[in-house]
Design a protein around this nucleic acid. Sequence first.
DNA 1: CTGTAAATATAACTATGTTTAATTTGTGAC
DNA 2: GTCACAAATTAAACATAGTTATATTTACAG
Lengths: 224, 224
Amino acid sequence: MGRRGEHSKAEIEAMALEAAESIIENEGYPGLSARKVASAIGYTVGSLYFVFKNLDELVQRVNGRTLDQLYTTLTEAMVDCRVPQTCLLALGSAYLDYATRHVHRWRMVFEHQPQSEGLPLEIHQDKMYRLFSLVEDQLQVLATRRSREEITVAASALWSGVHGIAIMAITRHLRSEDEQSVRNLTEHLISHYLDGLSVQESDAQTGAEEAGIFNANVIPSHSQ
Amino acid sequence: MGRRGEHSKAEIEAMALEAAESIIENEGYPGLSARKVASAIGYTVGSLYFVFKNLDELVQRVNGRTLDQLYTTLTEAMVDCRVPQTCLLALGSAYLDYATRHVHRWRMVFEHQPQSEGLPLEIHQDKMYRLFSLVEDQLQVLATRRSREEITVAASALWSGVHGIAIMAITRHLRSEDEQSVRNLTEHLISHYLDGLSVQESDAQTGAEEAGIFNANVIPSHSQ
DNA sequence: CTGTAAATATAACTATGTTTAATTTGTGAC
DNA sequence: GTCACAAATTAAACATAGTTATATTTACAG
């Protein structure tokens, strides 16, 4: 049947992306197939290739949406914090939450390797940089006398570290498997790293009682 | 052609694993196929299923060997260091080296998700714990007054962090792409984290001039 | 009303993992 | 020695995958 006109090309695209996200969320990337997506939106497989160049492109699009959603989640997680230390902890916590709640979609962002080297690189890098810059903004406030480059490096190191914990936890490579101890791990890394940073930054503490809470969490946070 | 007797079951197994490793190393996991492995060792696909239950099992076996090889590499990287700080930096550097040199095999350890939940969990966890304990040993020397549990937490956090940097670097999600700046990132994370740890450990510095080198690297290591 | 191009489906092609059914061949019994 | 049986190996078959090519339907232009 030809041009039904029921859905525009953009609509089909959106429907396909949503269906794919749902499949991936439930069954992981290995559960994704072109025919499954097509039938989920009431079309046959050929129509998918009318909208996407190939499955790789669909996956890249899903990854892009995941990164957007992640960015929104992270910014929303920071509305309540006032001191950079607390904000960074909130960021870490929210990141862990997102990774835990959307394991498969989150993993796919980092694990999918397109077979035909195409467009994905630049798009993803920008969206990833945007995430890192959330961390940079906080670090800049915290370590005022550091240069832009130093802040960039610090944000890369710290955030990659949080990312690593999330991966280790989700792939079950850590000894402690419960959610709480993983959360404590993240707090532990962030706070110790910041303590290390402030060794050279004498006047890092500008916030009032929140910073106190932060420092109190440094050690005993994981002792239970 | 029946029992040729040219190779024992164990020999075929070893040959298949080596062939698979080579394919993965060159083309990545997506390039791996049962028929490709079989033909690489001069057999047909059916014979693979005489030795392995399925492809998942083969992959798990490869992953196990990768973890063993990684463990050996890391222990060898520590023969020249005397002070825990230097040893930890050597560990981080060696880990990054291995990940960079064997990208696909290294990624597969963390990225492959078996479709039929089978045996892999326990084996991998043990081998992973062994890696973490290399870090624990160093931290134990460095922070003598910390409890075993605290050391475990610290090692998990720090090593997951290094792992995260390696992943971010390899998946091209970091701004700085050259090998040197990634290496600096790792040094940066390790040294700042250790500085943070020693905030509560007054007498952490026991080594002589090596510790000096270590501290000197804290800041300017990434400034170039 | 008719033709044309777009939208969609159907079918085909190749490659994959896995299973089943041959087939070959070493080896022990007699 | 040769005969049978079991083990080792191949060949074939099946289901499903991504992708491409072809057919078919339908909206719209004239």
